[in-house]
Structures are given as C-alpha cells and as structure tokens.
Design a protein around this nucleic acid. Structure first.
Lengths: 254, 254
DNA sequence: CGGATTATTGAGTAATATCAATCAGCGTGG
DNA sequence: CCACGCTGATTGATATTACTCAATAATCCG
C-alpha cells in the first residue's frame, strides 16, 4: 500500500490533527477504496434531498455545502478544503438535506459508505475519529450561525476570512496572512447572509481600514490580529482535540 | 434494571426514532450511570469554553445552546427538549465552544463521558447511533443558518415554530398544532437573529394573518400547512433515518 | 399589593436590500 | 494582436427592513 492517493493522505492528516491513530488505523484510512472524480467550476456534486452511498473527500480545490430557498437565493453552510470529507455525516444519515458544489475546478474522491462503515466497525477508535471530525464541522456551523445572526456585515465577512485562513494554514495549504480565495463576492455573500453588493461595499471598508489586501484571488492580511479583533474571531472552535483544555490566543468572550 | 430513569427512557426513545437497536444495546442505554440535577430558569449549566466530563441529557424542561458576543448579545444555536442529549458531541470533543442554559425550570441528567464511551466501544452500533444523533443536531443547525441568513423576520420566526412543533410531536411531548413554548420574545430573537422588538412586531403580523394564536406560553397553530408554507418549512431535515429515501410533505426546494 | 419581568407601542435612525448601470478582467475566435 | 462576449466587481440612487431608544401596559410572583 505504498503511494496512497494524495486525497487520502490529506484526509489522514486532517484526522490526525484532532485524533490519535494507531499504525493499523492509519493504514486502514490510506487503504480506503474510492472513485476519483474531476469537477468543473460551479458543478453540483450532490443536490439537496439526494440519498448518497458514498462520502465526498476533497483532494484538490474548494467545495461548499449549500441550501436553496424558494426564491432562488442560496445559503452556503460550509466551506471545504482539501483533506475535508464533505459529508462524512452521510455515513450515518445518507439522505442529505443540502447540496455540495464546487467553487472552482476540483478533484474529489467518492469513498463508499460501506468502506467507511467497515473500518469504523473494525477500529472503534476510527469511529470516534470520524465522529469527532463531523463534530468539528458542526462546531464551525454553530459559529457561522452566531456570525450570521449577531454581527454586522463587516465583522461577519472578516470572521469568514479569519476562519478560512486558519483552516488553510492548519491543513498546510497556506498561511493565515495570505491565501487564495476561490470565492466570488456573491458567494461570500451567500456564506454570510448578505447581498453581493453589500459584500462589495463592506470589503471596500475592510480594504480602506488596511485590514485586507486583495489582488485577483489572492487575499492578504497585513495584520492578522487586527482583523481577528475586528471580526471578534477566537480560533478555539476550530481546535477539537480529544481532550483540549487549551485556551485560544485572540479575542475574548463576554 | 427495572425502572430506568424517565430521562434515559426518553433518550432511548429518541435514539430509536433514527436507529435500530438490539435488546442488549437498549439495556445498555437504560443502564447508563448519571447524576440528576435540578436547574432553575435561566441557569447556565455550561459556559462557553468549559471542558466537560459528562454530557447533559434533558429529562424535563427546555434548554438551549448559546454563543455570546462581545457586546453582550447572544445567539441561541440549538433548542433542546426532553430526551435530547445536549452535548453528546462533547464525548469526542470535551472542550465546548458554547454554553448551555435552561429556558425554564428543568431536570437534567449528567451522564459521564466515560460511560458513554464505554457502551459505544462495546456496541459499535451504539457508536453509530450516537454519531447519527449528533448528525441530526448538525442538520438542524444547518437549517438554522439558512433560516437566519436568507429569510425575512416573519418566515424566520414561523420556521422556528414549525420546527419546535414537529420536534415536540415526534418526541411524544405535544402536537404541532399546539404546544407550550417556554421562550420569551427576546429568546426567540436570540434564536433567529432578531431584536425582541422586531420579534414582537413580526409575531403580531403572524397573529394578524391567523397563522398563530398565543395564550400565555401556549402556542396554537390553527392551520399548520399554511404556517409551514409561510415559513418555507420542509421537515425532511429532521428525519434522519439510517436509510431514508422518503420525501417530505410540505414545501418544495428550488 | 409591590417589584420584576415580559409584551407592546411609537418615533426616529441605521443597516441592508434592490434596481440598474457601468467598468474591468479574461478567454476566444478571427 | 484585437474585437466580442462573458462573468464578476463597482457605483449610485432609492426602497425596505430591522435596530435603537424610550416609554407604557400587562403579567407574573411572592
């Protein structure tokens, strides 16, 4: 089993961020079966209400989870980067209430639920690792809810940028000070519950304050702490160790 | 092991809604150890950032999960009813990013993580059931995000009312047409991202349209389908069967 | 009854959405 | 290399929605 697919390696790396895995367990991950699929920009991989038999692992590119409203508007409820298993959830609840689509060209691995279920049954510790992984997803979502529900436009967008930066950094895919953001302003709006016009104006405000610098799809953060402060961002919710009692660095609650 | 605590019985009932459990597995649930705690209105059981060693099972009363902003405002990110294990999550991620508080007088059982971990390890199927249970929580949260992010005040509130009604009904604790709502208008606002003043006015609009009738803490829904229509509510996201391919009744996507 | 929440109301303000252009970048075909 | 057509970014003007502040009425609770 030399030379596992890069996607599986990334996934393993992600799991190891939060869970301690034995050699055998790691090997089991790297040996998961999969089907590689290339996706074009804006392709929908999964539509809301589908019943799926596999989970979608991002090997390359950025994907998102979304919900559609009757009037055509869209809410993005998650942002996925390489190493993320988009709907690991669906192993235990195969009828999903949301869709998954690609923000840019992407490569994904479809990993059969049966395979995931098998390794999770053989290695209980892997079941816990999977569960822990989806828990992180839920933790992020809870933070999105409070971000959307209780903040003004500017800090809302800033919070999203902080989160993405940290996640990319933790995944070894960039730095919080500079990363590629494959989202249009409209998609940012769909993530934080704003209009593209308002996103545009709010981002101009962030630029005017020197909090962000944009060039093409490159997002640069000259002074990360200042952006985190403006966003009221505290990274603790992203760090789901098995037994964390650690505290975060920036921001303070209440 | 005759006469398990009512809280455990409710929890088992809740798990069985979505998972098939063997006799032994059911017995293991009913035999979980716990510490019973009485809570007064507005008590905080858990504060954001705490590391907990137990999960909190609601035996009686209504609880909520919340996040606090620097300016003192609060976002409620979940609503828990009897039978719900508030932070089953925390079994695998004991440092929680949120708080739990009671909306009214309540009784909860604190179930040690060790006990939950033990039964989940002994019965892999229980691990999946737990995982599935937290997945439902996440599914609800995703729906809250789109509710908050992409809907006007009136449908937002209506959606919350629909959801609570269905959940109480499914838990055998009331009917979607009439149930007790232990939330103040301010708390409703904290759940849907609105001011109490605006909640008040929006609920007046709902009443004027004949969509809801309130008396004390009793919420009555004369024509449930009409409310669901106004809320753009489709209950599918609440039904997380192991292998659902069923469709919902009301509402339509896209 | 008295004090404390909670609900309701009104008036004024701020934030965000909407609508409609225009501008800029970028790939394509000629 | 350039004109064309597309998507996404930006701008301006206006309409709505929701928030704020401040007061009053209702209820609750002992």
């Amino acid at each position: 089993m030399q030379d596992a697919h890069i996607g599986l390696t990334l996934f393993l790396g992600r799991l190891k961020l939060n869970s301690t895995l034995s050699e055998a367990e790691q090997a089991a991950i790297l040996n998961l079966s999969f089907r590689e699929v290339q996706v074009a920009t804006k392709d929908d991989l999964i539509m809301p209400g589908e019943t799926v038999t596999y989970s979608t692992l991002v090997a390359h590119g950025h994907l998102g989870r979304f919900d559609l409203m009757r009037n055509g508007s869209k809410q993005i409820t998650a942002f996925y980067i390489p190493g993320d298993m988009c709907d690991l959830f669906s192993v235990v609840a195969p009828t999903v209430g949301w869709g998954i689509s690609a923000f840019g060209p992407a490569t994904v691995l479809q990993v059969p639920h049966a395979a995931l279920m098998a390794v999770a049954t053989e290695y209980p510790n892997l079941a816990f690792a999977f569960w822990r992984d989806t828990t992180l997803d839920a933790s992020i979502l809870a933070k999105w809810a409070s971000n959307i529900g209780r903040k003004k436009a500017t800090p809302r967008i800033a919070h999203l940028l902080c989160e993405i930066g940290i996640r990319l950094e933790r995944a070894g895919l960039g730095s919080r000070q500079g990363f590629e953001l494959e989202l249009t302003q409209e998609q940012i709006g769909d993530a934080v519950g704003l209009t593209s016009v308002h996103v545009n104006r709010s981002m101009q405000a962030l630029r005017a304050d020197g909090l962000i610098v944009t060039k093409r799809q490159m997002m640069s953060i000259p002074d990360w702490n200042r952006l985190a402060e403006a966003a009221e961002f505290a990274p603790a919710y992203l760090l789901h160790d098995e037994a964390t009692s650690g505290r975060e660095e920036a921001g303070r609650s209440a």
